[in-house]
Design a protein around this nucleic acid. Structure first.
Lengths: 258, 258
DNA sequence: CGCATTGACGTTAACTTAACATGGCGATAT
DNA sequence: ATATCGCCATGTTAAGTTAACGTCAATGCG
Protein backbone atom coordinates (compact mmCIF):
# COMPACT_ATOMS: atom_id res chain seq x y z
CA UNK A 1 0.00 0.00 0.00
CA UNK A 2 2.02 2.90 1.29
CA UNK A 3 5.15 0.90 0.92
CA UNK A 4 4.30 -0.05 -2.64
CA UNK A 5 3.70 3.57 -3.53
CA UNK A 6 7.04 4.52 -2.10
CA UNK A 7 8.71 1.75 -4.03
CA UNK A 8 7.10 3.00 -7.21
CA UNK A 9 8.26 6.46 -6.41
CA UNK A 10 11.82 5.24 -5.96
CA UNK A 11 11.64 3.41 -9.25
CA UNK A 12 10.30 6.44 -11.04
CA UNK A 13 12.98 8.67 -9.55
CA UNK A 14 15.63 6.21 -10.60
CA UNK A 15 14.36 5.97 -14.14
CA UNK A 16 13.87 9.72 -14.43
CA UNK A 17 17.43 10.27 -13.25
CA UNK A 18 18.91 7.90 -15.80
CA UNK A 19 16.47 8.49 -18.65
CA UNK A 20 16.39 4.85 -19.62
CA UNK A 21 16.99 1.75 -17.55
CA UNK A 22 17.02 -1.94 -18.33
CA UNK A 23 14.54 -3.94 -16.34
CA UNK A 24 17.22 -6.30 -15.14
CA UNK A 25 19.08 -3.32 -13.74
CA UNK A 26 16.00 -2.40 -11.76
CA UNK A 27 15.71 -5.97 -10.51
CA UNK A 28 19.28 -5.89 -9.32
CA UNK A 29 19.16 -2.37 -7.98
CA UNK A 30 16.06 -2.92 -5.87
CA UNK A 31 16.69 -6.53 -5.01
CA UNK A 32 13.20 -7.79 -5.76
CA UNK A 33 11.91 -10.26 -8.29
CA UNK A 34 11.57 -9.37 -11.93
CA UNK A 35 7.85 -9.93 -11.62
CA UNK A 36 7.51 -7.32 -8.93
CA UNK A 37 9.42 -4.80 -10.99
CA UNK A 38 7.10 -5.52 -13.87
CA UNK A 39 4.07 -4.95 -11.75
CA UNK A 40 5.42 -1.67 -10.51
CA UNK A 41 6.40 -0.31 -13.87
CA UNK A 42 3.16 -1.51 -15.43
CA UNK A 43 1.35 0.71 -13.03
CA UNK A 44 3.69 3.61 -13.64
CA UNK A 45 3.28 3.15 -17.36
CA UNK A 46 -0.47 3.09 -17.00
CA UNK A 47 -0.23 6.34 -15.09
CA UNK A 48 1.73 7.79 -17.98
CA UNK A 49 4.92 8.34 -16.03
CA UNK A 50 7.08 5.73 -17.73
CA UNK A 51 7.02 3.86 -20.98
CA UNK A 52 7.85 0.18 -21.37
CA UNK A 53 10.14 -0.85 -24.18
CA UNK A 54 10.57 -4.62 -24.09
CA UNK A 55 13.48 -5.05 -21.78
CA UNK A 56 13.74 -1.49 -20.57
CA UNK A 57 11.77 1.52 -19.45
CA UNK A 58 12.15 5.18 -20.35
CA UNK A 59 10.61 8.35 -19.10
CA UNK A 60 7.51 9.40 -20.97
CA UNK A 61 8.86 11.51 -23.85
CA UNK A 62 6.52 14.48 -23.57
CA UNK A 63 6.94 15.40 -19.94
CA UNK A 64 10.64 16.06 -20.00
CA UNK A 65 10.46 19.42 -18.31
CA UNK A 66 9.13 19.26 -14.76
CA UNK A 67 9.48 15.49 -14.89
CA UNK A 68 9.94 14.99 -11.20
CA UNK A 69 7.19 17.41 -10.33
CA UNK A 70 4.86 16.06 -12.92
CA UNK A 71 5.52 12.60 -11.71
CA UNK A 72 4.70 13.53 -8.19
CA UNK A 73 1.44 15.06 -9.28
CA UNK A 74 0.60 12.14 -11.47
CA UNK A 75 1.41 9.54 -8.98
CA UNK A 76 -0.81 10.98 -6.35
CA UNK A 77 -3.08 8.15 -7.09
CA UNK A 78 -4.13 7.74 -3.52
CA UNK A 79 -5.36 11.33 -3.38
CA UNK A 80 -7.01 11.13 -6.74
CA UNK A 81 -8.76 7.90 -5.85
CA UNK A 82 -9.95 9.31 -2.57
CA UNK A 83 -11.37 12.36 -4.32
CA UNK A 84 -12.99 10.20 -6.94
CA UNK A 85 -14.58 7.93 -4.39
CA UNK A 86 -15.92 10.92 -2.50
CA UNK A 87 -17.32 12.37 -5.71
CA UNK A 88 -19.43 9.26 -6.13
CA UNK A 89 -21.62 10.47 -3.29
CA UNK A 90 -23.04 13.08 -5.62
CA UNK A 91 -23.96 10.72 -8.44
CA UNK A 92 -27.04 8.55 -8.56
CA UNK A 93 -27.98 5.80 -10.96
CA UNK A 94 -29.98 7.07 -13.90
CA UNK A 95 -28.45 10.52 -13.92
CA UNK A 96 -26.54 12.38 -16.57
CA UNK A 97 -22.94 13.00 -15.53
CA UNK A 98 -20.53 15.34 -17.24
CA UNK A 99 -16.78 14.88 -16.83
CA UNK A 100 -14.07 17.26 -17.93
CA UNK A 101 -10.70 16.29 -19.37
CA UNK A 102 -8.85 16.13 -16.06
CA UNK A 103 -7.15 12.99 -14.86
CA UNK A 104 -9.14 13.30 -11.65
CA UNK A 105 -12.39 13.11 -13.54
CA UNK A 106 -10.96 10.15 -15.38
CA UNK A 107 -10.46 8.43 -12.05
CA UNK A 108 -14.12 9.09 -11.32
CA UNK A 109 -15.04 7.46 -14.60
CA UNK A 110 -13.46 4.18 -13.56
CA UNK A 111 -15.68 4.15 -10.51
CA UNK A 112 -18.77 5.15 -12.45
CA UNK A 113 -18.65 1.80 -14.19
CA UNK A 114 -20.46 0.39 -11.18
CA UNK A 115 -23.19 3.04 -10.94
CA UNK A 116 -25.46 1.88 -13.71
CA UNK A 117 -27.49 2.87 -15.59
CA UNK A 118 -25.94 6.22 -16.37
CA UNK A 119 -25.46 8.73 -19.14
CA UNK A 120 -21.95 10.11 -19.25
CA UNK A 121 -20.68 13.05 -21.26
CA UNK A 122 -17.02 13.99 -21.67
CA UNK A 123 -14.49 15.57 -23.98
CA UNK A 124 -11.62 13.43 -22.69
CA UNK A 125 -10.32 10.80 -25.04
CA UNK A 126 -9.00 8.68 -22.18
CA UNK A 127 -12.37 8.71 -20.47
CA UNK A 128 -14.12 8.03 -23.74
CA UNK A 129 -12.07 4.90 -24.20
CA UNK A 130 -13.10 3.77 -20.74
CA UNK A 131 -16.80 4.25 -21.27
CA UNK A 132 -17.12 2.94 -24.77
CA UNK A 133 -18.97 -0.35 -25.06
CA UNK A 134 -20.06 -0.55 -21.45
CA UNK A 135 -23.50 -2.01 -20.90
CA UNK A 136 -26.01 0.33 -19.33
CA UNK A 137 -23.82 3.35 -19.86
CA UNK A 138 -25.07 5.69 -22.50
CA UNK A 139 -22.01 7.55 -23.59
CA UNK A 140 -21.90 10.90 -25.36
CA UNK A 141 -18.57 12.21 -26.57
CA UNK A 142 -18.09 15.93 -26.94
CA UNK A 143 -16.28 16.40 -30.21
CA UNK A 144 -14.07 19.25 -31.26
CA UNK A 145 -10.53 19.93 -32.19
CA UNK A 146 -8.18 17.33 -30.84
CA UNK A 147 -5.51 18.65 -28.52
CA UNK A 148 -2.69 16.25 -27.79
CA UNK A 149 -1.46 17.97 -24.65
CA UNK A 150 -4.74 17.35 -22.91
CA UNK A 151 -5.72 14.31 -24.93
CA UNK A 152 -9.13 15.87 -25.30
CA UNK A 153 -11.42 17.61 -27.73
CA UNK A 154 -11.76 21.34 -27.28
CA UNK A 155 -12.62 24.46 -29.28
CA UNK A 156 -15.77 26.01 -30.62
CA UNK A 157 -17.27 22.77 -31.80
CA UNK A 158 -16.88 21.36 -28.34
CA UNK A 159 -18.33 24.42 -26.62
CA UNK A 160 -21.38 24.37 -28.85
CA UNK A 161 -21.89 20.67 -28.29
CA UNK A 162 -21.88 21.24 -24.54
CA UNK A 163 -24.38 24.03 -24.91
CA UNK A 164 -26.86 21.60 -26.44
CA UNK A 165 -26.81 19.30 -23.47
CA UNK A 166 -27.79 19.34 -19.81
CA UNK A 167 -26.31 17.21 -17.07
CA UNK A 168 -27.44 16.54 -13.54
CA UNK A 169 -23.91 16.87 -12.27
CA UNK A 170 -20.55 18.10 -13.51
CA UNK A 171 -17.38 16.67 -12.05
CA UNK A 172 -14.29 18.65 -12.93
CA UNK A 173 -10.94 19.91 -11.78
CA UNK A 174 -8.77 22.99 -12.22
CA UNK A 175 -5.10 23.77 -12.74
CA UNK A 176 -4.64 25.99 -9.73
CA UNK A 177 -6.40 27.75 -6.88
CA UNK A 178 -5.63 31.02 -5.14
CA UNK A 179 -8.01 32.50 -2.60
CA UNK A 180 -11.44 31.51 -3.84
CA UNK A 181 -10.53 31.60 -7.51
CA UNK A 182 -9.93 28.54 -9.69
CA UNK A 183 -7.58 28.90 -12.65
CA UNK A 184 -6.94 27.06 -15.89
CA UNK A 185 -3.92 27.53 -18.07
CA UNK A 186 -5.35 27.17 -21.56
CA UNK A 187 -7.89 29.70 -22.88
CA UNK A 188 -9.68 27.16 -25.02
CA UNK A 189 -9.97 24.71 -22.20
CA UNK A 190 -11.36 27.34 -19.91
CA UNK A 191 -14.15 28.08 -22.37
CA UNK A 192 -15.13 24.45 -22.55
CA UNK A 193 -15.18 24.16 -18.78
CA UNK A 194 -17.25 27.29 -18.43
CA UNK A 195 -19.71 25.89 -20.93
CA UNK A 196 -19.85 22.73 -18.88
CA UNK A 197 -20.61 24.78 -15.78
CA UNK A 198 -23.49 26.43 -17.56
CA UNK A 199 -24.83 23.09 -18.74
CA UNK A 200 -24.93 21.37 -15.37
CA UNK A 201 -27.38 21.56 -12.51
CA UNK A 202 -24.90 20.55 -9.85
CA UNK A 203 -21.19 21.29 -10.04
CA UNK A 204 -18.44 19.53 -8.18
CA UNK A 205 -14.81 20.56 -8.14
CA UNK A 206 -12.09 18.07 -7.24
CA UNK A 207 -8.78 19.52 -6.12
CA UNK A 208 -5.75 17.98 -4.55
CA UNK A 209 -4.13 20.25 -2.04
CA UNK A 210 -0.95 20.73 -4.08
CA UNK A 211 -2.88 23.02 -6.40
CA UNK A 212 -3.66 25.59 -3.76
CA UNK A 213 -1.79 28.88 -3.65
CA UNK A 214 -0.85 28.61 -7.27
CA UNK A 215 -2.19 30.46 -10.24
CA UNK A 216 -2.58 29.76 -13.93
CA UNK A 217 -3.21 32.07 -16.84
CA UNK A 218 -7.00 32.19 -17.00
CA UNK A 219 -9.68 32.53 -14.40
CA UNK A 220 -12.01 29.57 -14.52
CA UNK A 221 -14.59 30.44 -11.85
CA UNK A 222 -15.03 31.31 -8.22
CA UNK A 223 -15.11 28.44 -5.79
CA UNK A 224 -18.47 29.63 -4.51
CA UNK A 225 -19.95 28.72 -7.89
CA UNK A 226 -19.57 25.05 -7.09
CA UNK A 227 -22.08 23.08 -5.12
CA UNK A 228 -19.24 21.18 -3.50
CA UNK A 229 -15.51 21.59 -3.52
CA UNK A 230 -13.70 18.39 -2.59
CA UNK A 231 -10.14 18.83 -1.42
CA UNK A 232 -7.60 16.48 0.05
CA UNK A 233 -6.64 16.85 3.66
CA UNK A 234 -3.21 18.32 3.09
CA UNK A 235 -5.03 21.59 2.55
CA UNK A 236 -4.68 22.52 6.20
CA UNK A 237 -7.13 23.90 8.73
CA UNK A 238 -6.27 27.55 8.24
CA UNK A 239 -6.98 27.57 4.54
CA UNK A 240 -10.03 25.39 5.00
CA UNK A 241 -11.54 27.78 7.51
CA UNK A 242 -10.77 30.78 5.32
CA UNK A 243 -12.55 29.16 2.41
CA UNK A 244 -15.56 28.27 4.48
CA UNK A 245 -15.75 31.80 5.82
CA UNK A 246 -15.77 32.97 2.21
CA UNK A 247 -18.83 30.84 1.56
CA UNK A 248 -17.18 27.90 -0.20
CA UNK A 249 -18.94 24.59 0.38
CA UNK A 250 -15.81 22.72 1.22
CA UNK A 251 -15.47 19.05 2.02
CA UNK A 252 -12.16 17.61 3.09
CA UNK A 253 -11.46 14.10 1.88
CA UNK A 254 -9.20 11.84 3.88
CA UNK A 255 -6.67 10.11 1.71
CA UNK A 256 -6.33 7.06 3.85
CA UNK A 257 -6.68 5.99 7.45
CA UNK A 258 -3.18 4.78 8.32
CA UNK B 1 0.14 -8.99 -50.30
CA UNK B 2 -2.88 -10.59 -51.84
CA UNK B 3 -1.92 -13.91 -50.42
CA UNK B 4 -1.37 -12.51 -46.97
CA UNK B 5 -4.76 -10.85 -47.05
CA UNK B 6 -6.38 -14.11 -48.00
CA UNK B 7 -4.61 -15.87 -45.23
CA UNK B 8 -5.83 -13.27 -42.80
CA UNK B 9 -9.32 -13.67 -44.15
CA UNK B 10 -9.15 -17.42 -43.61
CA UNK B 11 -7.94 -16.91 -40.09
CA UNK B 12 -10.68 -14.42 -39.34
CA UNK B 13 -13.31 -16.76 -40.76
CA UNK B 14 -11.99 -19.57 -38.65
CA UNK B 15 -11.99 -17.52 -35.48
CA UNK B 16 -15.41 -16.06 -36.16
CA UNK B 17 -16.80 -19.52 -36.74
CA UNK B 18 -15.46 -20.85 -33.47
CA UNK B 19 -15.75 -17.69 -31.40
CA UNK B 20 -12.48 -18.31 -29.63
CA UNK B 21 -9.43 -20.22 -30.77
CA UNK B 22 -6.12 -21.01 -29.18
CA UNK B 23 -3.16 -19.72 -31.09
CA UNK B 24 -1.57 -23.14 -31.19
CA UNK B 25 -4.69 -24.43 -32.87
CA UNK B 26 -4.28 -21.82 -35.55
CA UNK B 27 -0.65 -22.79 -35.96
CA UNK B 28 -1.62 -26.40 -36.45
CA UNK B 29 -4.66 -25.69 -38.57
CA UNK B 30 -2.85 -23.47 -41.03
CA UNK B 31 0.49 -25.22 -40.88
CA UNK B 32 2.61 -22.11 -40.54
CA UNK B 33 4.88 -20.92 -37.79
CA UNK B 34 3.56 -19.48 -34.60
CA UNK B 35 5.30 -16.23 -35.44
CA UNK B 36 3.40 -15.90 -38.69
CA UNK B 37 0.11 -16.48 -36.95
CA UNK B 38 1.00 -13.84 -34.46
CA UNK B 39 1.78 -11.37 -37.19
CA UNK B 40 -1.53 -12.07 -38.90
CA UNK B 41 -3.65 -11.79 -35.82
CA UNK B 42 -1.80 -8.71 -34.67
CA UNK B 43 -2.91 -7.05 -37.83
CA UNK B 44 -6.45 -8.31 -37.50
CA UNK B 45 -6.50 -7.11 -33.93
CA UNK B 46 -5.25 -3.73 -35.02
CA UNK B 47 -8.06 -3.61 -37.57
CA UNK B 48 -10.46 -4.31 -34.75
CA UNK B 49 -11.62 -7.65 -36.10
CA UNK B 50 -10.12 -9.88 -33.44
CA UNK B 51 -8.87 -9.49 -29.93
CA UNK B 52 -5.75 -11.15 -28.55
CA UNK B 53 -5.96 -12.86 -25.19
CA UNK B 54 -2.54 -14.30 -24.31
CA UNK B 55 -2.66 -17.70 -25.87
CA UNK B 56 -5.89 -17.30 -27.78
CA UNK B 57 -7.90 -14.93 -29.91
CA UNK B 58 -11.60 -14.10 -29.81
CA UNK B 59 -13.86 -12.11 -32.03
CA UNK B 60 -14.12 -8.48 -31.06
CA UNK B 61 -16.89 -8.35 -28.46
CA UNK B 62 -18.40 -5.07 -29.61
CA UNK B 63 -20.60 -6.84 -32.10
CA UNK B 64 -19.41 -4.76 -34.97
CA UNK B 65 -17.67 -7.52 -36.83
CA UNK B 66 -19.43 -10.52 -35.51
CA UNK B 67 -21.44 -11.32 -38.55
CA UNK B 68 -19.53 -12.87 -41.37
CA UNK B 69 -21.04 -10.33 -43.70
CA UNK B 70 -19.84 -7.42 -41.67
CA UNK B 71 -16.46 -8.97 -41.50
CA UNK B 72 -16.23 -9.55 -45.20
CA UNK B 73 -16.99 -5.93 -45.81
CA UNK B 74 -14.16 -5.08 -43.53
CA UNK B 75 -11.67 -7.51 -44.80
CA UNK B 76 -12.18 -6.93 -48.47
CA UNK B 77 -9.07 -5.00 -48.11
CA UNK B 78 -7.97 -5.24 -51.70
CA UNK B 79 -11.13 -3.56 -52.97
CA UNK B 80 -11.21 -1.12 -50.14
CA UNK B 81 -7.60 -0.16 -50.62
CA UNK B 82 -8.11 0.33 -54.33
CA UNK B 83 -11.07 2.60 -53.68
CA UNK B 84 -9.17 4.47 -51.01
CA UNK B 85 -6.17 5.00 -53.22
CA UNK B 86 -8.38 6.29 -55.98
CA UNK B 87 -10.11 8.63 -53.58
CA UNK B 88 -6.77 10.26 -52.84
CA UNK B 89 -6.91 11.86 -56.29
CA UNK B 90 -9.57 14.19 -54.96
CA UNK B 91 -7.66 15.36 -51.90
CA UNK B 92 -4.94 17.98 -51.88
CA UNK B 93 -2.57 19.02 -49.13
CA UNK B 94 -3.94 21.82 -47.01
CA UNK B 95 -7.58 20.94 -47.51
CA UNK B 96 -10.28 20.04 -45.04
CA UNK B 97 -11.42 16.46 -45.47
CA UNK B 98 -14.51 14.94 -43.93
CA UNK B 99 -14.78 11.19 -43.46
CA UNK B 100 -17.87 9.26 -42.46
CA UNK B 101 -17.94 6.23 -40.18
CA UNK B 102 -17.53 3.62 -42.92
CA UNK B 103 -14.65 1.23 -42.95
CA UNK B 104 -13.91 2.38 -46.48
CA UNK B 105 -13.39 5.92 -45.30
CA UNK B 106 -11.22 4.51 -42.56
CA UNK B 107 -9.02 2.96 -45.23
CA UNK B 108 -8.76 6.38 -46.81
CA UNK B 109 -7.63 7.79 -43.49
CA UNK B 110 -4.64 5.48 -43.39
CA UNK B 111 -3.51 6.88 -46.74
CA UNK B 112 -4.20 10.45 -45.73
CA UNK B 113 -1.37 10.20 -43.26
CA UNK B 114 0.96 10.97 -46.15
CA UNK B 115 -0.95 13.97 -47.55
CA UNK B 116 0.11 16.60 -45.07
CA UNK B 117 -0.79 19.16 -43.91
CA UNK B 118 -4.46 18.41 -43.67
CA UNK B 119 -7.50 19.01 -41.53
CA UNK B 120 -9.60 15.92 -41.06
CA UNK B 121 -13.08 15.64 -39.58
CA UNK B 122 -14.82 12.41 -38.70
CA UNK B 123 -17.32 10.79 -36.38
CA UNK B 124 -15.64 7.38 -36.54
CA UNK B 125 -13.86 6.25 -33.41
CA UNK B 126 -11.55 3.98 -35.38
CA UNK B 127 -10.54 6.79 -37.68
CA UNK B 128 -10.14 9.14 -34.76
CA UNK B 129 -7.68 6.75 -33.18
CA UNK B 130 -5.71 6.74 -36.41
CA UNK B 131 -5.47 10.50 -36.74
CA UNK B 132 -4.83 11.39 -33.16
CA UNK B 133 -1.36 12.72 -32.48
CA UNK B 134 -0.22 12.86 -36.08
CA UNK B 135 2.03 15.78 -36.91
CA UNK B 136 0.64 18.20 -39.46
CA UNK B 137 -2.83 16.74 -39.25
CA UNK B 138 -5.32 18.93 -37.53
CA UNK B 139 -7.96 16.57 -36.32
CA UNK B 140 -11.54 17.42 -35.40
CA UNK B 141 -13.72 14.75 -33.92
CA UNK B 142 -17.47 14.98 -34.35
CA UNK B 143 -18.92 14.09 -31.00
CA UNK B 144 -22.32 12.70 -30.23
CA UNK B 145 -23.93 9.63 -28.81
CA UNK B 146 -21.65 6.65 -29.03
CA UNK B 147 -23.07 3.77 -31.02
CA UNK B 148 -21.24 0.49 -30.62
CA UNK B 149 -22.56 -1.12 -33.76
CA UNK B 150 -20.92 1.49 -35.92
CA UNK B 151 -18.17 2.39 -33.47
CA UNK B 152 -19.01 6.00 -34.15
CA UNK B 153 -20.66 9.05 -32.68
CA UNK B 154 -24.08 9.91 -34.07
CA UNK B 155 -27.26 11.71 -33.07
CA UNK B 156 -28.35 15.31 -32.79
CA UNK B 157 -25.14 16.49 -31.19
CA UNK B 158 -23.21 15.07 -34.09
CA UNK B 159 -25.49 16.55 -36.71
CA UNK B 160 -25.22 19.99 -35.18
CA UNK B 161 -21.46 19.73 -34.93
CA UNK B 162 -21.29 18.94 -38.63
CA UNK B 163 -23.49 21.87 -39.43
CA UNK B 164 -20.94 24.22 -37.88
CA UNK B 165 -18.17 23.09 -40.19
CA UNK B 166 -17.29 23.15 -43.85
CA UNK B 167 -15.05 20.73 -45.68
CA UNK B 168 -13.47 20.86 -49.10
CA UNK B 169 -14.30 17.24 -49.68
CA UNK B 170 -16.43 14.52 -48.13
CA UNK B 171 -15.45 10.90 -48.56
CA UNK B 172 -18.17 8.49 -47.57
CA UNK B 173 -19.88 5.23 -48.31
CA UNK B 174 -23.37 3.75 -48.19
CA UNK B 175 -25.00 0.50 -47.14
CA UNK B 176 -26.65 -0.32 -50.45
CA UNK B 177 -27.39 0.95 -53.92
CA UNK B 178 -30.34 0.32 -56.20
CA UNK B 179 -30.75 2.22 -59.43
CA UNK B 180 -29.34 5.64 -58.73
CA UNK B 181 -30.31 5.68 -55.07
CA UNK B 182 -27.96 5.15 -52.16
CA UNK B 183 -29.38 3.67 -48.95
CA UNK B 184 -28.37 3.55 -45.31
CA UNK B 185 -29.91 1.25 -42.76
CA UNK B 186 -29.95 3.40 -39.64
CA UNK B 187 -32.07 6.55 -39.48
CA UNK B 188 -29.67 8.36 -37.17
CA UNK B 189 -26.73 7.56 -39.35
CA UNK B 190 -28.48 8.78 -42.43
CA UNK B 191 -29.08 12.14 -40.82
CA UNK B 192 -25.43 12.54 -39.97
CA UNK B 193 -24.40 11.66 -43.50
CA UNK B 194 -26.88 14.05 -44.99
CA UNK B 195 -25.52 16.78 -42.76
CA UNK B 196 -22.07 15.90 -44.01
CA UNK B 197 -23.24 16.23 -47.58
CA UNK B 198 -24.57 19.67 -46.85
CA UNK B 199 -21.33 20.70 -45.20
CA UNK B 200 -19.00 19.70 -48.02
CA UNK B 201 -18.10 21.39 -51.26
CA UNK B 202 -17.14 18.20 -53.06
CA UNK B 203 -18.70 14.81 -52.33
CA UNK B 204 -17.22 11.46 -53.12
CA UNK B 205 -18.96 8.15 -52.69
CA UNK B 206 -16.97 4.93 -52.39
CA UNK B 207 -18.85 1.73 -53.12
CA UNK B 208 -17.69 -1.80 -53.61
CA UNK B 209 -19.72 -3.61 -56.21
CA UNK B 210 -21.24 -6.06 -53.74
CA UNK B 211 -23.50 -3.29 -52.52
CA UNK B 212 -25.29 -2.79 -55.80
CA UNK B 213 -28.81 -4.06 -56.32
CA UNK B 214 -29.45 -4.10 -52.61
CA UNK B 215 -31.54 -1.80 -50.53
CA UNK B 216 -31.52 -0.65 -46.93
CA UNK B 217 -34.17 1.03 -44.87
CA UNK B 218 -33.50 4.70 -45.49
CA UNK B 219 -32.75 6.70 -48.59
CA UNK B 220 -29.43 8.47 -48.24
CA UNK B 221 -29.20 10.43 -51.47
CA UNK B 222 -29.21 10.11 -55.23
CA UNK B 223 -25.97 9.13 -56.87
CA UNK B 224 -26.15 12.23 -59.04
CA UNK B 225 -25.64 14.32 -55.91
CA UNK B 226 -22.05 13.16 -55.71
CA UNK B 227 -19.24 14.78 -57.61
CA UNK B 228 -17.72 11.36 -58.12
CA UNK B 229 -18.90 7.84 -57.45
CA UNK B 230 -16.03 5.39 -57.20
CA UNK B 231 -17.00 1.76 -57.72
CA UNK B 232 -14.98 -1.41 -58.01
CA UNK B 233 -14.82 -3.17 -61.33
CA UNK B 234 -17.07 -6.08 -60.43
CA UNK B 235 -19.92 -3.67 -61.08
CA UNK B 236 -20.20 -4.75 -64.71
CA UNK B 237 -20.46 -2.82 -67.92
CA UNK B 238 -24.23 -2.94 -68.17
CA UNK B 239 -24.83 -1.34 -64.84
CA UNK B 240 -22.01 1.12 -65.36
CA UNK B 241 -23.49 2.34 -68.61
CA UNK B 242 -26.94 2.62 -67.12
CA UNK B 243 -25.61 4.78 -64.32
CA UNK B 244 -23.71 7.01 -66.67
CA UNK B 245 -26.78 7.43 -68.85
CA UNK B 246 -28.61 8.54 -65.70
CA UNK B 247 -26.06 11.28 -65.18
CA UNK B 248 -23.94 9.67 -62.47
CA UNK B 249 -20.28 10.69 -62.58
CA UNK B 250 -18.99 7.16 -62.29
CA UNK B 251 -15.40 6.05 -62.11
CA UNK B 252 -14.51 2.39 -62.12
CA UNK B 253 -11.53 1.45 -59.97
CA UNK B 254 -9.45 -1.57 -60.85
CA UNK B 255 -8.77 -3.71 -57.84
CA UNK B 256 -5.42 -4.91 -59.04
CA UNK B 257 -3.45 -5.17 -62.24
CA UNK B 258 -2.58 -8.87 -62.33
C1' DC C 1 -9.78 -14.88 19.24
C1' DG C 2 -10.32 -17.24 15.04
C1' DC C 3 -11.43 -16.63 10.18
C1' DA C 4 -12.08 -14.49 5.87
C1' DT C 5 -10.19 -10.82 2.90
C1' DT C 6 -6.90 -8.17 0.72
C1' DG C 7 -2.63 -6.84 -1.25
C1' DA C 8 2.31 -7.57 -2.06
C1' DC C 9 5.54 -10.67 -3.55
C1' DG C 10 7.85 -14.97 -5.50
C1' DT C 11 8.01 -18.96 -8.74
C1' DT C 12 7.27 -21.33 -12.82
C1' DA C 13 5.51 -22.51 -17.25
C1' DA C 14 3.41 -20.73 -21.10
C1' DC C 15 3.35 -17.18 -24.14
C1' DT C 16 4.96 -13.09 -26.91
C1' DT C 17 8.33 -10.16 -28.94
C1' DA C 18 12.50 -8.46 -31.18
C1' DA C 19 16.00 -9.27 -34.17
C1' DC C 20 18.10 -11.47 -37.59
C1' DA C 21 18.20 -14.93 -41.54
C1' DT C 22 16.05 -16.96 -45.67
C1' DG C 23 13.74 -17.25 -49.91
C1' DG C 24 10.35 -15.70 -53.35
C1' DC C 25 8.82 -12.20 -56.42
C1' DG C 26 8.44 -8.07 -59.06
C1' DA C 27 10.83 -3.89 -60.78
C1' DT C 28 14.55 -1.58 -62.86
C1' DA C 29 18.70 -1.39 -65.13
C1' DT C 30 22.04 -3.48 -68.26
C1' DA D 1 16.34 -11.54 -71.59
C1' DT D 2 19.12 -11.60 -67.45
C1' DA D 3 21.17 -9.70 -63.38
C1' DT D 4 20.50 -7.28 -59.39
C1' DC D 5 18.13 -4.79 -56.06
C1' DG D 6 14.69 -4.29 -52.72
C1' DC D 7 10.55 -5.55 -50.53
C1' DC D 8 7.65 -8.82 -48.10
C1' DA D 9 6.24 -12.82 -46.08
C1' DT D 10 8.00 -16.21 -43.44
C1' DG D 11 10.98 -18.96 -40.27
C1' DT D 12 14.23 -19.35 -36.23
C1' DT D 13 15.92 -18.43 -31.87
C1' DA D 14 16.93 -15.92 -27.74
C1' DA D 15 15.28 -12.65 -24.69
C1' DG D 16 11.50 -10.77 -22.48
C1' DT D 17 6.72 -10.76 -20.62
C1' DT D 18 2.50 -12.62 -18.78
C1' DA D 19 -0.89 -15.49 -16.38
C1' DA D 20 -1.75 -18.45 -12.81
C1' DC D 21 -1.00 -20.14 -8.59
C1' DG D 22 0.99 -20.14 -3.88
C1' DT D 23 2.73 -17.88 0.28
C1' DC D 24 2.77 -14.50 3.78
C1' DA D 25 1.52 -10.54 6.45
C1' DA D 26 -1.75 -6.96 7.53
C1' DT D 27 -6.52 -5.75 8.06
C1' DG D 28 -11.31 -6.21 9.16
C1' DC D 29 -15.13 -8.41 11.46
C1' DG D 30 -18.21 -11.22 14.12
Amino acid sequence: MIKADERREEIADYVIKLGQVRIDDLVEHFGVSRMTIHRHIDRLAQQGVLRKLHGAVTVQPSGLYESAFRYRVTVNRAEKDALARAALDYVEAGQVVMLDDSSTANAVATLLLDVKPLTVITNSVATAALLTNVDDIDFICLGGQYHGTYNAYIGIVCENAVAQLRANVLICSASAITGTTAFIQDPNVVRVKQAMMAASVKRILLIDHAKFDRIALHVFDDLTSFDVVLATEGLGDARAQALERAGVKLRIVKTKAP
